[in-house]
């Protein structure tokens, strides 16, 4: 038993964190809110060059031939900065499904991206207008050609470009379709990063902000809010890392493990968003302040790829079995 990452995995994480700290700042995010694509120009190619996009692809396709344990920490970093890119769809969900597909090399090189759609599993499809590869999450089959129509919606998170994808659903049925698990796992990791970021921003703020002549972070009511947020994150993260291991190792219970991770990560990020806003007070209620960039992403991701309730029902079937519809 060794429940920890290797030094190499942590170094890779640090390198991605450094890149994103420079290239995915609140200024970049604000630009993505208003530009044509909702993405950060040039950043996707940099992530591909580092190997993040093709991490799960075989080396023969230009990938790194690594697994979900390597990837999960990096996805957490993409959540921390609210990266406005289709990283979960492409790197976590789609890439392993494209082995044998002629387009994989271009995906790994960062030239094209994938969009995974299925209202029952994913919810709204994201960045579909800039995607080239479409995969139906329900059966893991790749769309031949392009969707019939993309119906654009407007997300509360302005950098998240969301769509209903109208397409002829490709036929095919697999007994073991790993896409729902890998998408939910990646989203759970992003939610942990977001929760951590919102807690960190709030801690910094309440240390500085003074009322009644003292920092508001010295008040117990504020301390207890933040302690609760930190507590929820502390006990969500290990479930996410364990789920990554279970998916990578094809554990027979991996779907339940992913659901435990996504349920607790969704709740932790939701709580962090509530605590962060309340402790910031009115400044957090403005769009001039950066908190809303992360809070709104958390609102969206808490419900994408199955919300906490959906995942708890999935655990319930594994745990309580026949009692579900008793």
């Amino acid at each position: 038993m060794r429940f920890a990452f290797t030094d190499e995995q942590l170094e890779f994480r640090d390198a991605v964190r450094d890149l994103l700290a420079k290239e995915c700042t609140p200024t970049h995010l604000r630009d993505a809110w208003t530009n044509d694509t909702g993405r950060i120009p040039g950043l996707w190619r940099q992530l591909a060059e580092m190997g993040v996009v093709g991490m799960l692809a075989p080396e023969a396709n230009g990938g790194l031939g690594m697994d979900e344990i390597d990837l999960v920490l990096l996805l957490e970093e993409t959540g921390r900065v609210a990266l406005p890119e289709p990283i979960v769809d492409t790197a976590a969900a789609a890439v392993p499904e494209l082995i044998g597909d002629a387009r994989l090399d271009a995906v790994v090189r960062g030239e094209i991206t994938a969009c995974v759609f299925d209202p029952q599993i994913v919810g709204l499809a994201t960045w579909a207008d800039t995607a080239s590869v479409f995969i139906f999450a329900g059966n893991g089959e790749t769309l031949r050609g392009t969707p019939t129509e993309l119906r654009r919606g407007t997300s509360v998170d302005g950098s998240r470009r969301v769509f209903d994808v109208v397409a002829d659903i490709p036929a095919g049925a697999r007994t073991d379709n790993p896409i729902p698990d890998r998408g939910a796992l990646g989203t759970a990791a992003q939610l942990c990063g977001l929760a951590d970021r919102m807690i960190e921003m709030t801690v910094d703020y309440v240390k500085e902000r003074k009322q009644f002549g003292v920092p508001i972070g010295s008040f117990q009511a504020v301390k207890h809010h933040l302690a609760n947020a930190r507590l929820a994150l502390e006990f969500a993260r290990p479930l996410v890392y364990r789920a990554a291991y279970s998916v990578a190792r094809h554990d027979p219970d991996r779907s339940a493990h992913v659901s435990m991770a996504k349920a607790n990560a969704s709740d932790a990020a939701h709580l962090a968003s509530r605590v962060a806003l309340q402790c910031h007070g009115a400044i957090g209620y403005t769009t001039e302040y950066d908190l809303h960039l992360y809070m709104k992403r958390a609102w969206a991701l808490a419900r994408a790829w199955g919300d906490a309730g959906w995942h708890r029902q999935r655990i319930e079937r594994a745990l309580l079995g026949g009692t579900t519809n008793a």
Partner: peptide, 12 residues
């Protein structure tokens, strides 16, 4: 919760 806030999160 005070301990978490003060010694884990670093609040005053």
């Amino acid at each position: 919760r005070n301990v978490v806030a003060e010694r884990v999160l670093g609040l005053p």
